[in-house]
Design a protein around this nucleic acid. Structure first.
Lengths: 174, 174
DNA sequence: TAGATTTTGTTATGATATAACAAGTCAAAC
DNA sequence: GTTTGACTTGTTATATCATAACAAAATCTA
């Protein structure tokens, strides 16, 4: 494994960090989304745009029906296909990820860069940190190729205890 | 990444390989299950044992309700809790894995060895190959630790085209 | 603006999973 | 060998996640 690459950690993005203004993330994500959609001749309609915002406003992965409820509150249609269509669009555009082990959806922090969505999911506070790790990606491609397997998509979801909850747990014992 | 370990591929297990007798796998898996349960003071009851066999008899991951239908045919109770209880037991005992991206369950080929369930899932034929890859595991632990994250479980599900389906696709074009 | 394409509305249903509590089974302690 | 307690299973109901199918509306393009 190469370890000489610079910036291997540059893509970390912690949702709900107390040290960042989440509004900036949302604004940036929406701006990126607009740009990408225009570039690709895709229509970021009202419901799609608002769905994306709501996903970003949530600090943790949002379930489809949670999102649907929020959309319904705002006057959008409240039938399931509404939300699943929006989610399908956003997933296809790479603007969100689905966390398979939670059946929930999360804003993608770097939709404009080709990347894989790898996640660290805290069992305790349920916050999710997306990370990018080119070395893992490269190793997985090679491993798959050994089996004659051509990789198309990767679901990498790691669960455990985040640093905050680990400290909290340690404090509780002491 | 260490590359000097021998046998880094020794755990590959392809379900539904034409070149192996799947019955041997089932027998072996069941024998291992019996042993493990006895060792751990767990009861491999009729329904749990039969559920495990049925999962193994299926050549690809089996959905909970597919399994429930098979159990019902054999006179077991046909209500969902029956199958989910069996699945929960088998998962907790490490005898099966859940493939999150498919909502389906797969026999674990090496329940007696500590390992992580990593999967290659063919988009075309839907066969699943479980693989073990210590180097990835080690790298992920290290990566998580960098973020102060203590890893507990890993969901690694890779989708794409298996070698057979790749050949088939190439043949169709030619 | 006509026709084609895409998006949304609407109704219904399918698929996956759990809650809650009652009844039965088993094994160890008495 | 019966009681006791833990574990397992039965049963009913419901929660949660997702899609099919077709009609209506909006938007793009020629």
């Amino acid at each position: 494994m190469k370890t000489t690459e610079p910036h291997q950690s540059e893509h970390e993005h912690e949702h709900q960090s107390s040290s960042h203004n989440h509004n900036d993330c949302i604004d940036s994500a929406l701006a990126t989304a607009e740009t990408l959609c225009v570039q690709q001749g895709q229509r970021l309609t009202k419901v799609r745009r608002r769905a994306l915002e709501l996903i970003w406003e949530s600090h943790r992965p949002l379930g489809a029906y949670q999102l649907l409820a929020k959309l319904a509150e705002e006057g959008f249609n409240s039938a399931p296909p509404t939300v699943y269509r929006a989610l399908d669009f956003l997933l296809a555009a790479g603007l969100i990820h689905k966390v398979e082990s939670m059946n929930a959806y999360l804003g993608c922090a770097h939709a404009d860069k080709a990347h894989k969505g790898y996640f660290l999911i805290c069992d305790d506070c349920h916050n999710v940190m997306e990370f990018d790790y080119q070395d893992i990606h490269t190793a997985l491609i090679a491993k798959a190729a050994q089996q004659g397997f051509e990789l198309r998509a990767e679901t990498i979801e790691l669960t455990g205890l985040c640093s905050k909850c680990k400290s909290k747990a340690a404090g509780a014992i002491a």
